[in-house]
């Protein structure tokens, strides 16, 4: 067990430099047009920054493996929540609701699924 693992200060200075550079990069690329990839790039850079903070500032890289399990669980459950909610909202207009559900609306759904 790594008893009292002390991370050298130069590692912290390297990490903060990378974080600052990535902040400048994320602002810069936001003004370039990559279509839908702009969002992917912005979230991707944010994920890299978050990973650097977690691994080095939060010492996860040097921590007991059980902590990796918990940190990973946080990420996995967040992804599950997003995937289920988005698949619900994004698929709602794919099929018309059954006529019996249309209680409050005046016109029944007539359009075929597209």
């Amino acid at each position: 067990m790594s008893d009292h693992h002390v991370i050298p200060v130069r590692v912290y200075l390297t990490i903060i430099s990378i974080l600052m550079v990535l902040t400048v990069v994320t602002v810069w690329v936001a003004f370039l047009d990559f279509g839908f990839l702009n969002t992917v790039i912005a979230v991707g850079i944010a994920c890299i920054k978050a990973l650097l903070v977690v691994m080095y500032f939060m010492h996860l890289k040097y921590s007991a493996r059980v902590l990796w399990l918990y940190a990973g669980a946080g990420a996995v459950f967040f992804v599950i929540m997003m995937a289920l909610m988005l698949s619900d909202y994004r698929s709602r207009e794919w099929f018309p609701a059954p006529a019996a559900w249309e209680v409050t609306t005046t016109a029944p759904a007539t359009s075929a699924p597209h």
Partner: peptide, 18 residues
Amino acid sequence: VDIVWIFLFPMLYLIGRH
């Protein structure tokens, strides 16, 4: 708390600037 802001900044301030 820092990590939360790392995500908030691009999502609120930078999205759709191009």
